[in-house]
Write a protein that binds this DNA or RNA. Sequence first.
DNA 1: AGCGCCTGTCTACGCTGTAGACTGTACCCG
DNA 2: CGGGTACAGTCTACAGCGTAGACAGGCGCT
Lengths: 234, 234
Amino acid sequence: MDSPRASGRTPAKARLSRETVLAKALELVDAEGLDALTMRRLGQELGRDPMSLYRYADNRAALLDGVSELVLDQLPIHPEDPDWKAQLRNIAHDLRMLALEHPNVVPLLVTRPLSTPLGLRPLGTLRPLEQILTLLASAGFEPADALHVYRAYYGFLYGHILNELQEYVVDPEENEVLLRLGLHRLPAKEFPRLRALAPALSEYDGARELDQGLTILLSGLEAQLSRQVAGSRA
Amino acid sequence: MDSPRASGRTPAKARLSRETVLAKALELVDAEGLDALTMRRLGQELGRDPMSLYRYADNRAALLDGVSELVLDQLPIHPEDPDWKAQLRNIAHDLRMLALEHPNVVPLLVTRPLSTPLGLRPLGTLRPLEQILTLLASAGFEPADALHVYRAYYGFLYGHILNELQEYVVDPEENEVLLRLGLHRLPAKEFPRLRALAPALSEYDGARELDQGLTILLSGLEAQLSRQVAGSRA
DNA sequence: AGCGCCTGTCTACGCTGTAGACTGTACCCG
DNA sequence: CGGGTACAGTCTACAGCGTAGACAGGCGCT
């Protein structure tokens, strides 16, 4: 059962690599959540001693960073598109999809950078930033303006993703809306509006909402920046 | 040293209460971060057996929820202001300030709801939502539209807060900008733009950036919604 | 006076991350 | 071909974690 070449979940006794470790880690997180990703459990899943993992990640935190990186690396890089707004829109939708595919990783994406100074983050998590900066630069933005656009954009994007994941359905089996969202527990007198919104809440169209928000934000940013440029020229 | 009426960090042997427990918990989180908030440590801080805490919170997760609630309860409620946009602006700045005062709590604010269905969250964390819905309702919005505005608004707001906290300075002692942000570690060839932005990054004016974003977003939302209303009337 | 409730304590269990010493194998170099 | 070195993986052990469950003490009511 444990003989060499036995067929476990993985080829059993092939050499480990950072890639296989991180891949299994992500798999585990996707399937059972962040808490399930313990060194012991991951070791077991790989058919190895837990301590062997430390050859591929300094510690658990680094492992989590690796998982973030792995997910962000899946962000497709889009071919040239003349329109920066269209590009940002595409990237936003890509990231949204990625988040929906790996909802358990989102807390990492959002939380880890809070405890890690910009320059010390895994490079994979900074690449999207650099990518957007170049995109904006080639669209003619001054560096400082590009930074402003980036911030407003990414802020909104992450905010949207958090929002969308938060609202999601508890118990899809239950078909009474109030129950499905657990809203029945709320005291009706204190939360009349929220309770009344149950039907609307359950019909959330995330892609659409994201898109509308982007339209507002991007055209607003464009207007504001062209105004600034015009102003500083005068 | 451990006699009754001894003067420890707290009055020593007064009865515990949920309030005192949560207050100490928040204090601990503010001072030393989320990881420092263990049952044992908190018990020690209160001069009590760790197990006594379970009378005031079902488990550690509930304790964390309590801390979130405690922070959000500090959100001031603003007097009537005729202008919904002005109100949303005020609330946004209040929440931003709160986040800057309790940066270690932000991960909780952002993360906990992801694993808790809407209806099962601590009531304190839902109150801002309900409050904004009423605000928008009294400004004349249809419930469904109010929800859209709320989503775009809160999404942007939380996104901004995350952004701002992420960019913040590591080691205020170090005054060489590149070093402070750790940017020197980045390979110059791969991250030219990001590295070049170092000075701009260190001059982040969060309040201003938030305000500009809100201006764009709110006026955009207003325009979009009034257009919709006009359209559906025709 | 007696009963019952409630707060806080104690002990114990299974789990966690990880330091440090160790083994075995694969490869390179003389 | 022999010996050495580097490195993958294992083992043992430790300190700390959350928390179940049994228990103690004191207060207030009847």
